[in-house]
Design a binder for these strands. Sequence first.
DNA 1: TTTTCCGTGACATATTGGCGACACATCGAA
DNA 2: TTCGATGTGTCGCCAATATGTCACGGAAAA
Lengths: 226, 226
Amino acid sequence: MSFRLLIVEDSPELLEATGDFFREEGSGLWDVVTASDGNDALAKVRGGSFDLMILDIMLPGASGFDICRAARQKSDCPIIFVTALGSENNILKGYETGCDDYVVKPFSLRHLYAKSLALLKRAKKSSDGDILRCGTISLNRNTMLVTVEGREVAINAREYFLLVYLLENKGAVLTRKAILDHVWGDDLDVSDRVVDNTIRRLRESLGSASGQIKTAIGRGYRITEE
Amino acid sequence: MSFRLLIVEDSPELLEATGDFFREEGSGLWDVVTASDGNDALAKVRGGSFDLMILDIMLPGASGFDICRAARQKSDCPIIFVTALGSENNILKGYETGCDDYVVKPFSLRHLYAKSLALLKRAKKSSDGDILRCGTISLNRNTMLVTVEGREVAINAREYFLLVYLLENKGAVLTRKAILDHVWGDDLDVSDRVVDNTIRRLRESLGSASGQIKTAIGRGYRITEE
DNA sequence: TTTTCCGTGACATATTGGCGACACATCGAA
DNA sequence: TTCGATGTGTCGCCAATATGTCACGGAAAA
Protein backbone atom coordinates (compact mmCIF):
# COMPACT_ATOMS: atom_id res chain seq x y z
CA MET A 1 0.00 0.00 0.00
CA SER A 2 1.50 3.25 -1.05
CA PHE A 3 0.21 6.78 -1.23
CA ARG A 4 0.11 8.81 -4.39
CA LEU A 5 1.94 12.07 -4.05
CA LEU A 6 1.96 14.85 -6.61
CA ILE A 7 4.80 17.38 -6.47
CA VAL A 8 4.58 20.45 -8.67
CA GLU A 9 7.65 22.67 -8.82
CA ASP A 10 9.24 24.56 -11.68
CA SER A 11 12.81 24.39 -10.43
CA PRO A 12 14.18 21.08 -11.75
CA GLU A 13 16.75 20.74 -8.97
CA LEU A 14 14.29 21.30 -6.18
CA LEU A 15 11.73 19.04 -7.84
CA GLU A 16 14.20 16.20 -8.10
CA ALA A 17 15.55 16.73 -4.61
CA THR A 18 12.09 16.70 -3.09
CA GLY A 19 10.99 13.65 -5.04
CA ASP A 20 14.11 11.75 -4.08
CA PHE A 21 13.75 12.68 -0.46
CA PHE A 22 10.22 11.31 -0.29
CA ARG A 23 11.15 8.18 -2.19
CA GLU A 24 14.15 7.40 -0.03
CA GLU A 25 12.75 8.44 3.29
CA GLY A 26 9.49 6.64 2.68
CA SER A 27 11.09 3.47 1.29
CA GLY A 28 8.08 2.62 -0.80
CA LEU A 29 5.50 4.52 1.16
CA TRP A 30 5.14 7.12 -1.56
CA ASP A 31 4.29 6.77 -5.19
CA VAL A 32 5.72 10.06 -6.42
CA VAL A 33 4.39 11.87 -9.49
CA THR A 34 5.96 15.16 -10.55
CA ALA A 35 5.09 18.06 -12.80
CA SER A 36 7.15 21.12 -13.60
CA ASP A 37 4.55 23.46 -15.05
CA GLY A 38 0.99 24.41 -14.33
CA ASN A 39 -0.67 22.87 -17.33
CA ASP A 40 1.06 19.54 -16.93
CA ALA A 41 0.01 19.56 -13.29
CA LEU A 42 -3.60 20.33 -14.17
CA ALA A 43 -3.68 17.43 -16.59
CA LYS A 44 -2.31 15.07 -13.98
CA VAL A 45 -4.74 16.29 -11.34
CA ARG A 46 -7.64 15.73 -13.69
CA GLY A 47 -6.32 12.39 -14.84
CA GLY A 48 -5.64 10.63 -11.57
CA SER A 49 -6.32 10.75 -7.88
CA PHE A 50 -3.78 11.63 -5.23
CA ASP A 51 -3.46 11.25 -1.50
CA LEU A 52 -1.34 14.37 -1.08
CA MET A 53 -0.20 17.30 -3.20
CA ILE A 54 2.71 19.67 -2.77
CA LEU A 55 2.20 22.69 -5.00
CA ASP A 56 4.49 25.54 -5.78
CA ILE A 57 2.47 28.71 -6.22
CA MET A 58 4.48 30.54 -8.84
CA LEU A 59 4.52 28.38 -11.92
CA PRO A 60 4.62 28.71 -15.68
CA GLY A 61 1.16 28.01 -17.05
CA ALA A 62 -1.50 27.66 -14.35
CA SER A 63 -0.67 28.80 -10.82
CA GLY A 64 -0.69 26.65 -7.73
CA PHE A 65 -3.99 28.26 -6.78
CA ASP A 66 -5.54 27.13 -10.07
CA ILE A 67 -4.32 23.59 -9.52
CA CYS A 68 -5.66 23.60 -6.01
CA ARG A 69 -9.09 24.72 -7.17
CA ALA A 70 -9.11 22.07 -9.86
CA ALA A 71 -8.15 19.41 -7.33
CA ARG A 72 -10.84 20.53 -4.92
CA GLN A 73 -13.43 19.90 -7.63
CA LYS A 74 -12.98 16.19 -7.26
CA SER A 75 -11.41 15.36 -3.93
CA ASP A 76 -10.38 16.77 -0.61
CA CYS A 77 -6.91 15.32 -0.46
CA PRO A 78 -4.45 17.30 1.66
CA ILE A 79 -2.60 20.07 -0.19
CA ILE A 80 0.56 21.84 0.89
CA PHE A 81 1.56 25.10 -0.76
CA VAL A 82 5.12 26.11 -1.31
CA THR A 83 5.66 29.82 -1.61
CA ALA A 84 8.85 31.68 -2.28
CA LEU A 85 7.32 34.91 -1.27
CA GLY A 86 6.35 34.27 2.27
CA SER A 87 4.03 37.19 2.00
CA GLU A 88 0.96 37.04 4.09
CA ASN A 89 -1.53 37.53 1.33
CA ASN A 90 -0.29 34.50 -0.51
CA ILE A 91 -0.72 32.39 2.56
CA LEU A 92 -4.12 33.86 3.18
CA LYS A 93 -5.15 33.27 -0.40
CA GLY A 94 -3.84 29.76 -0.14
CA TYR A 95 -6.04 28.92 2.78
CA GLU A 96 -8.99 30.51 1.01
CA THR A 97 -8.41 28.31 -2.00
CA GLY A 98 -8.52 25.32 0.27
CA CYS A 99 -4.96 24.31 1.07
CA ASP A 100 -4.19 22.55 4.35
CA ASP A 101 -0.71 23.82 5.09
CA TYR A 102 2.15 25.74 3.54
CA VAL A 103 5.92 26.02 3.70
CA VAL A 104 8.03 29.04 2.85
CA LYS A 105 11.11 28.79 0.69
CA PRO A 106 13.78 28.09 1.53
CA PHE A 107 12.50 25.18 3.56
CA SER A 108 13.95 22.04 5.07
CA LEU A 109 12.96 18.85 3.30
CA ARG A 110 12.64 17.11 6.62
CA HIS A 111 10.24 19.77 7.76
CA LEU A 112 8.15 19.39 4.62
CA TYR A 113 8.21 15.63 5.05
CA ALA A 114 7.00 15.84 8.62
CA LYS A 115 4.13 18.09 7.61
CA SER A 116 3.21 15.70 4.83
CA LEU A 117 3.09 12.72 7.13
CA ALA A 118 1.00 14.58 9.65
CA LEU A 119 -1.51 15.65 7.03
CA LEU A 120 -1.66 12.22 5.50
CA LYS A 121 -2.26 10.63 8.86
CA ARG A 122 -4.99 13.08 9.68
CA ALA A 123 -6.66 12.54 6.31
CA LYS A 124 -6.48 8.79 6.77
CA LYS A 125 -7.91 8.97 10.22
CA SER A 126 -10.79 11.25 9.41
CA SER A 127 -11.68 9.37 6.28
CA ASP A 128 -11.41 5.96 7.90
CA GLY A 129 -14.15 6.70 10.36
CA ASP A 130 -16.37 8.69 8.11
CA ILE A 131 -16.34 6.89 4.83
CA LEU A 132 -17.57 3.35 4.60
CA ARG A 133 -16.58 1.50 1.49
CA CYS A 134 -17.41 -1.88 0.10
CA GLY A 135 -16.75 -2.85 -3.47
CA THR A 136 -18.00 -0.01 -5.63
CA ILE A 137 -20.21 1.37 -2.88
CA SER A 138 -19.00 4.32 -0.88
CA LEU A 139 -20.94 5.98 1.91
CA ASN A 140 -19.96 9.25 3.55
CA ARG A 141 -21.34 9.54 7.04
CA ASN A 142 -20.79 13.28 7.21
CA THR A 143 -22.57 14.25 4.04
CA MET A 144 -24.85 11.20 4.13
CA LEU A 145 -24.20 10.71 0.46
CA VAL A 146 -23.84 7.37 -1.22
CA THR A 147 -21.94 6.76 -4.42
CA VAL A 148 -21.66 3.72 -6.65
CA GLU A 149 -18.73 3.63 -9.04
CA GLY A 150 -18.13 7.25 -8.11
CA ARG A 151 -21.57 8.40 -9.13
CA GLU A 152 -23.96 9.66 -6.53
CA VAL A 153 -27.15 7.70 -6.08
CA ALA A 154 -30.43 8.80 -4.52
CA ILE A 155 -31.33 6.91 -1.41
CA ASN A 156 -34.05 7.08 1.23
CA ALA A 157 -33.59 7.43 4.94
CA ARG A 158 -34.44 3.83 5.86
CA GLU A 159 -32.32 2.53 3.04
CA TYR A 160 -29.49 4.77 4.15
CA PHE A 161 -29.44 3.56 7.73
CA LEU A 162 -29.85 -0.01 6.64
CA LEU A 163 -26.87 0.40 4.34
CA VAL A 164 -24.86 1.94 7.17
CA TYR A 165 -25.61 -1.06 9.35
CA LEU A 166 -24.68 -3.47 6.62
CA LEU A 167 -21.44 -1.63 5.90
CA GLU A 168 -20.54 -1.41 9.58
CA ASN A 169 -20.68 -5.20 9.57
CA LYS A 170 -19.24 -5.82 6.17
CA GLY A 171 -19.33 -9.48 5.26
CA ALA A 172 -21.32 -10.60 8.26
CA VAL A 173 -24.74 -12.16 8.01
CA LEU A 174 -27.22 -9.96 9.82
CA THR A 175 -30.49 -11.49 10.93
CA ARG A 176 -33.77 -9.69 10.40
CA LYS A 177 -34.12 -9.30 14.12
CA ALA A 178 -30.73 -7.64 14.43
CA ILE A 179 -31.53 -5.39 11.50
CA LEU A 180 -34.88 -4.42 13.00
CA ASP A 181 -33.26 -3.68 16.33
CA HIS A 182 -30.56 -1.49 14.84
CA VAL A 183 -32.34 0.24 12.00
CA TRP A 184 -35.89 0.48 13.26
CA GLY A 185 -35.17 0.70 16.96
CA ASP A 186 -37.42 -0.55 19.70
CA ASP A 187 -40.67 0.64 18.21
CA LEU A 188 -41.19 -2.79 16.78
CA ASP A 189 -44.71 -3.56 15.92
CA VAL A 190 -43.60 -3.96 12.35
CA SER A 191 -43.53 -7.14 10.37
CA ASP A 192 -40.30 -8.88 9.42
CA ARG A 193 -41.13 -8.26 5.83
CA VAL A 194 -40.31 -4.57 5.98
CA VAL A 195 -36.70 -5.67 6.04
CA ASP A 196 -37.17 -7.61 2.83
CA ASN A 197 -38.82 -4.69 1.17
CA THR A 198 -36.29 -2.17 2.33
CA ILE A 199 -33.55 -4.48 1.13
CA ARG A 200 -35.31 -4.66 -2.20
CA ARG A 201 -35.59 -0.89 -2.46
CA LEU A 202 -32.00 -0.48 -1.39
CA ARG A 203 -30.92 -2.87 -4.11
CA GLU A 204 -32.88 -0.85 -6.65
CA SER A 205 -31.24 2.35 -5.45
CA LEU A 206 -27.79 0.82 -5.64
CA GLY A 207 -28.23 -0.09 -9.27
CA SER A 208 -25.20 -1.93 -10.57
CA ALA A 209 -23.98 -2.63 -7.04
CA SER A 210 -27.20 -4.33 -6.03
CA GLY A 211 -25.54 -7.73 -6.30
CA GLN A 212 -23.28 -6.89 -3.40
CA ILE A 213 -26.16 -7.40 -1.01
CA LYS A 214 -26.48 -11.13 -0.60
CA THR A 215 -29.36 -13.08 0.85
CA ALA A 216 -28.46 -15.80 3.34
CA ILE A 217 -31.66 -17.78 3.18
CA GLY A 218 -33.00 -18.70 6.57
CA ARG A 219 -30.53 -16.43 8.30
CA GLY A 220 -30.53 -12.90 6.96
CA TYR A 221 -28.62 -10.53 4.71
CA ARG A 222 -25.03 -9.43 4.26
CA ILE A 223 -23.00 -7.11 2.10
CA THR A 224 -19.89 -8.30 0.29
CA GLU A 225 -17.12 -6.81 -1.79
CA GLU A 226 -18.46 -8.33 -4.92
CA MET B 1 -2.08 -24.91 26.38
CA SER B 2 0.66 -23.00 24.66
CA PHE B 3 0.66 -20.31 22.03
CA ARG B 4 2.68 -20.44 18.88
CA LEU B 5 4.95 -17.45 18.55
CA LEU B 6 7.01 -16.60 15.49
CA ILE B 7 9.99 -14.30 15.93
CA VAL B 8 11.74 -13.02 12.83
CA GLU B 9 14.97 -11.13 13.36
CA ASP B 10 18.22 -11.11 11.43
CA SER B 11 20.50 -10.36 14.34
CA PRO B 12 21.34 -13.77 15.87
CA GLU B 13 22.02 -12.34 19.32
CA LEU B 14 18.79 -10.42 19.51
CA LEU B 15 16.85 -13.34 18.10
CA GLU B 16 18.18 -15.69 20.71
CA ALA B 17 17.76 -13.21 23.53
CA THR B 18 14.15 -12.55 22.59
CA GLY B 19 13.32 -16.21 22.18
CA ASP B 20 14.90 -17.08 25.52
CA PHE B 21 13.08 -14.28 27.24
CA PHE B 22 9.70 -15.49 26.04
CA ARG B 23 10.51 -19.10 26.86
CA GLU B 24 11.69 -18.31 30.37
CA GLU B 25 9.24 -15.61 31.23
CA GLY B 26 6.30 -17.59 29.93
CA SER B 27 7.51 -20.91 31.38
CA GLY B 28 5.78 -23.01 28.79
CA LEU B 29 3.22 -20.50 27.68
CA TRP B 30 5.00 -19.93 24.40
CA ASP B 31 5.94 -22.33 21.70
CA VAL B 32 8.66 -20.24 20.07
CA VAL B 33 9.57 -20.56 16.41
CA THR B 34 12.31 -18.37 14.96
CA ALA B 35 13.51 -17.30 11.56
CA SER B 36 16.48 -15.14 10.69
CA ASP B 37 15.70 -14.16 7.12
CA GLY B 38 12.66 -13.17 5.13
CA ASN B 39 12.33 -16.22 2.96
CA ASP B 40 12.61 -18.64 5.85
CA ALA B 41 9.98 -16.63 7.66
CA LEU B 42 7.66 -16.67 4.66
CA ALA B 43 7.95 -20.44 4.45
CA LYS B 44 7.13 -20.84 8.12
CA VAL B 45 4.19 -18.45 7.90
CA ARG B 46 2.79 -20.38 4.98
CA GLY B 47 3.48 -23.71 6.59
CA GLY B 48 1.95 -23.28 10.02
CA SER B 49 -0.39 -21.13 11.99
CA PHE B 50 0.68 -18.77 14.75
CA ASP B 51 -0.98 -16.96 17.60
CA LEU B 52 1.44 -14.06 17.54
CA MET B 53 4.24 -12.78 15.32
CA ILE B 54 7.10 -10.43 16.07
CA LEU B 55 8.61 -9.23 12.83
CA ASP B 56 11.70 -7.21 12.18
CA ILE B 57 11.12 -4.96 9.20
CA MET B 58 14.61 -4.83 7.69
CA LEU B 59 15.54 -8.36 6.76
CA PRO B 60 17.56 -10.20 4.17
CA GLY B 61 15.13 -11.72 1.69
CA ALA B 62 11.55 -10.63 2.13
CA SER B 63 10.82 -7.62 4.35
CA GLY B 64 8.67 -7.66 7.46
CA PHE B 65 5.94 -5.98 5.41
CA ASP B 66 5.96 -8.86 2.95
CA ILE B 67 5.69 -11.39 5.73
CA CYS B 68 2.86 -9.45 7.31
CA ARG B 69 0.94 -9.38 4.07
CA ALA B 70 1.47 -13.11 3.57
CA ALA B 71 0.28 -13.80 7.10
CA ARG B 72 -2.80 -11.64 6.62
CA GLN B 73 -3.78 -13.83 3.70
CA LYS B 74 -4.65 -16.66 6.00
CA SER B 75 -5.22 -15.38 9.49
CA ASP B 76 -5.63 -12.31 11.61
CA CYS B 77 -3.21 -13.22 14.35
CA PRO B 78 -1.65 -10.24 16.13
CA ILE B 79 1.54 -8.91 14.58
CA ILE B 80 4.14 -6.68 16.21
CA PHE B 81 6.67 -4.88 14.07
CA VAL B 82 10.18 -4.15 15.18
CA THR B 83 11.80 -1.23 13.46
CA ALA B 84 15.31 0.04 13.86
CA LEU B 85 14.46 3.26 12.17
CA GLY B 86 11.81 4.57 14.43
CA SER B 87 10.76 6.81 11.61
CA GLU B 88 7.13 7.56 11.27
CA ASN B 89 6.68 6.28 7.77
CA ASN B 90 7.64 2.76 8.70
CA ILE B 91 5.15 2.82 11.49
CA LEU B 92 2.47 4.24 9.25
CA LYS B 93 3.20 1.71 6.58
CA GLY B 94 3.16 -1.00 9.18
CA TYR B 95 -0.33 -0.10 10.26
CA GLU B 96 -1.36 0.07 6.63
CA THR B 97 -0.08 -3.43 6.06
CA GLY B 98 -2.11 -4.57 9.00
CA CYS B 99 0.16 -4.83 12.01
CA ASP B 100 -1.28 -4.37 15.49
CA ASP B 101 1.60 -2.74 17.30
CA TYR B 102 5.26 -1.90 16.95
CA VAL B 103 8.37 -1.37 19.00
CA VAL B 104 11.37 0.73 18.13
CA LYS B 105 14.91 -0.52 18.55
CA PRO B 106 16.51 -0.49 20.97
CA PHE B 107 13.63 -1.81 23.02
CA SER B 108 13.23 -3.45 26.38
CA LEU B 109 12.35 -7.13 26.22
CA ARG B 110 10.01 -6.70 29.14
CA HIS B 111 8.20 -4.00 27.24
CA LEU B 112 7.87 -6.21 24.17
CA TYR B 113 6.65 -9.05 26.33
CA ALA B 114 3.97 -6.88 27.91
CA LYS B 115 2.72 -5.78 24.52
CA SER B 116 2.66 -9.37 23.35
CA LEU B 117 0.59 -10.54 26.27
CA ALA B 118 -1.86 -7.69 25.83
CA LEU B 119 -2.34 -8.42 22.16
CA LEU B 120 -2.68 -12.13 22.73
CA LYS B 121 -5.27 -11.56 25.40
CA ARG B 122 -7.24 -9.24 23.18
CA ALA B 123 -7.10 -11.68 20.27
CA LYS B 124 -8.16 -14.58 22.44
CA LYS B 125 -11.02 -12.63 23.88
CA SER B 126 -12.38 -11.58 20.54
CA SER B 127 -12.14 -15.06 19.15
CA ASP B 128 -13.24 -17.11 22.12
CA GLY B 129 -16.84 -18.07 21.92
CA ASP B 130 -17.14 -16.37 18.59
CA ILE B 131 -15.12 -18.63 16.40
CA LEU B 132 -15.46 -22.38 16.50
CA ARG B 133 -12.63 -24.25 14.89
CA CYS B 134 -12.09 -27.88 14.15
CA GLY B 135 -9.47 -29.11 11.76
CA THR B 136 -9.74 -27.00 8.64
CA ILE B 137 -13.29 -25.92 9.47
CA SER B 138 -13.83 -22.52 10.99
CA LEU B 139 -17.21 -21.12 11.94
CA ASN B 140 -17.72 -17.53 13.01
CA ARG B 141 -20.80 -17.12 15.13
CA ASN B 142 -20.88 -13.37 14.68
CA THR B 143 -20.75 -13.29 10.94
CA MET B 144 -22.39 -16.70 10.56
CA LEU B 145 -19.79 -17.54 7.97
CA VAL B 146 -18.08 -20.89 7.56
CA THR B 147 -14.70 -21.41 6.00
CA VAL B 148 -12.80 -24.54 5.04
CA GLU B 149 -9.07 -24.15 4.53
CA GLY B 150 -9.61 -20.42 4.73
CA ARG B 151 -12.08 -20.36 1.88
CA GLU B 152 -15.66 -19.41 2.50
CA VAL B 153 -18.24 -22.06 1.79
CA ALA B 154 -21.95 -21.66 1.13
CA ILE B 155 -24.13 -23.33 3.70
CA ASN B 156 -27.84 -23.57 4.46
CA ALA B 157 -29.54 -22.55 7.64
CA ARG B 158 -30.18 -26.10 8.92
CA GLU B 159 -26.71 -27.20 7.99
CA TYR B 160 -25.31 -24.15 9.73
CA PHE B 161 -27.06 -24.78 13.02
CA LEU B 162 -26.26 -28.47 12.85
CA LEU B 163 -22.62 -27.61 12.35
CA VAL B 164 -22.74 -25.22 15.29
CA TYR B 165 -24.09 -28.01 17.49
CA LEU B 166 -21.45 -30.44 16.30
CA LEU B 167 -18.66 -27.92 16.87
CA GLU B 168 -19.96 -26.98 20.30
CA ASN B 169 -19.50 -30.63 21.21
CA LYS B 170 -16.33 -31.27 19.28
CA GLY B 171 -15.32 -34.89 19.39
CA ALA B 172 -18.41 -36.07 21.23
CA VAL B 173 -20.89 -38.49 19.69
CA LEU B 174 -24.30 -36.84 19.38
CA THR B 175 -27.34 -39.06 19.06
CA ARG B 176 -30.00 -38.34 16.50
CA LYS B 177 -32.41 -37.55 19.28
CA ALA B 178 -30.05 -35.01 20.81
CA ILE B 179 -29.45 -33.44 17.43
CA LEU B 180 -33.17 -33.23 16.71
CA ASP B 181 -33.79 -31.63 20.08
CA HIS B 182 -31.11 -29.01 19.65
CA VAL B 183 -31.27 -28.20 15.97
CA TRP B 184 -34.93 -28.78 15.17
CA GLY B 185 -36.38 -27.84 18.53
CA ASP B 186 -39.43 -29.33 20.10
CA ASP B 187 -41.62 -29.33 17.04
CA LEU B 188 -40.57 -32.84 16.28
CA ASP B 189 -42.91 -34.80 14.19
CA VAL B 190 -40.06 -35.40 11.81
CA SER B 191 -38.40 -38.67 11.03
CA ASP B 192 -34.95 -39.52 12.36
CA ARG B 193 -33.72 -39.71 8.82
CA VAL B 194 -33.75 -35.95 8.31
CA VAL B 195 -30.63 -35.92 10.42
CA ASP B 196 -28.95 -38.33 8.06
CA ASN B 197 -29.89 -36.24 5.10
CA THR B 198 -28.86 -32.97 6.66
CA ILE B 199 -25.57 -34.57 7.64
CA ARG B 200 -25.17 -35.68 4.07
CA ARG B 201 -25.88 -32.19 2.73
CA LEU B 202 -23.58 -30.65 5.29
CA ARG B 203 -20.81 -32.97 4.18
CA GLU B 204 -21.38 -31.91 0.60
CA SER B 205 -21.18 -28.25 1.59
CA LEU B 206 -17.98 -28.80 3.54
CA GLY B 207 -16.24 -30.25 0.52
CA SER B 208 -12.74 -31.39 1.40
CA ALA B 209 -13.54 -31.27 5.12
CA SER B 210 -16.47 -33.62 4.80
CA GLY B 211 -14.43 -36.44 6.28
CA GLN B 212 -14.27 -34.65 9.61
CA ILE B 213 -17.86 -35.60 10.28
CA LYS B 214 -17.71 -39.19 11.44
CA THR B 215 -20.55 -41.65 11.71
CA ALA B 216 -20.71 -43.59 14.96
CA ILE B 217 -22.81 -46.49 13.82
CA GLY B 218 -25.70 -47.23 16.12
CA ARG B 219 -25.02 -44.13 18.15
CA GLY B 220 -24.95 -40.98 16.07
CA TYR B 221 -22.49 -38.49 14.63
CA ARG B 222 -19.48 -36.51 15.77
CA ILE B 223 -17.02 -34.05 14.38
CA THR B 224 -13.28 -34.62 14.70
CA GLU B 225 -10.08 -32.72 13.99
CA GLU B 226 -9.31 -34.87 11.04
C1' DT C 1 -25.65 -65.49 7.07
C1' DT C 2 -28.85 -62.49 8.85
C1' DT C 3 -30.01 -58.31 10.63
C1' DT C 4 -29.43 -53.74 11.47
C1' DC C 5 -27.86 -49.46 10.08
C1' DC C 6 -26.55 -45.84 7.04
C1' DG C 7 -25.55 -43.38 2.35
C1' DT C 8 -27.71 -41.91 -1.66
C1' DG C 9 -30.80 -40.44 -5.30
C1' DA C 10 -35.31 -39.07 -6.42
C1' DC C 11 -39.23 -36.90 -5.31
C1' DA C 12 -42.82 -34.19 -2.76
C1' DT C 13 -43.73 -30.55 0.13
C1' DA C 14 -42.89 -26.54 2.98
C1' DT C 15 -40.67 -22.37 3.57
C1' DT C 16 -38.60 -18.34 2.18
C1' DG C 17 -37.92 -14.25 -0.01
C1' DG C 18 -38.66 -11.24 -4.37
C1' DC C 19 -41.92 -8.45 -6.33
C1' DG C 20 -45.85 -5.70 -7.58
C1' DA C 21 -49.62 -3.26 -5.77
C1' DC C 22 -51.74 -0.66 -2.44
C1' DA C 23 -52.68 2.17 1.79
C1' DC C 24 -51.38 5.39 4.88
C1' DA C 25 -48.28 9.02 6.69
C1' DT C 26 -45.47 12.91 6.16
C1' DC C 27 -44.01 17.01 4.27
C1' DG C 28 -43.97 21.18 1.28
C1' DA C 29 -45.83 24.14 -1.90
C1' DA C 30 -49.61 26.52 -3.82
C1' DT D 1 -55.95 24.74 4.32
C1' DT D 2 -55.72 21.46 0.19
C1' DC D 3 -53.23 18.98 -2.92
C1' DG D 4 -49.71 16.26 -4.69
C1' DA D 5 -45.19 14.08 -4.24
C1' DT D 6 -42.59 11.08 -1.77
C1' DG D 7 -41.45 7.72 1.78
C1' DT D 8 -42.69 3.70 4.24
C1' DG D 9 -45.30 -0.41 6.00
C1' DT D 10 -48.40 -4.28 4.62
C1' DC D 11 -50.41 -7.83 1.88
C1' DG D 12 -50.73 -11.54 -1.43
C1' DC D 13 -48.90 -14.17 -5.13
C1' DC D 14 -45.32 -16.89 -7.14
C1' DA D 15 -40.85 -18.71 -8.11
C1' DA D 16 -36.76 -20.36 -6.00
C1' DT D 17 -34.89 -22.81 -2.58
C1' DA D 18 -34.60 -25.52 1.38
C1' DT D 19 -36.15 -29.37 3.67
C1' DG D 20 -38.54 -33.81 4.76
C1' DT D 21 -39.75 -38.48 3.09
C1' DC D 22 -39.21 -42.66 0.87
C1' DA D 23 -37.08 -46.61 -1.20
C1' DC D 24 -33.17 -49.08 -2.43
C1' DG D 25 -28.66 -51.02 -2.02
C1' DG D 26 -24.59 -51.80 0.29
C1' DA D 27 -21.79 -51.92 4.50
C1' DA D 28 -21.16 -53.03 9.13
C1' DA D 29 -22.43 -55.59 13.19
C1' DA D 30 -24.40 -59.84 15.33
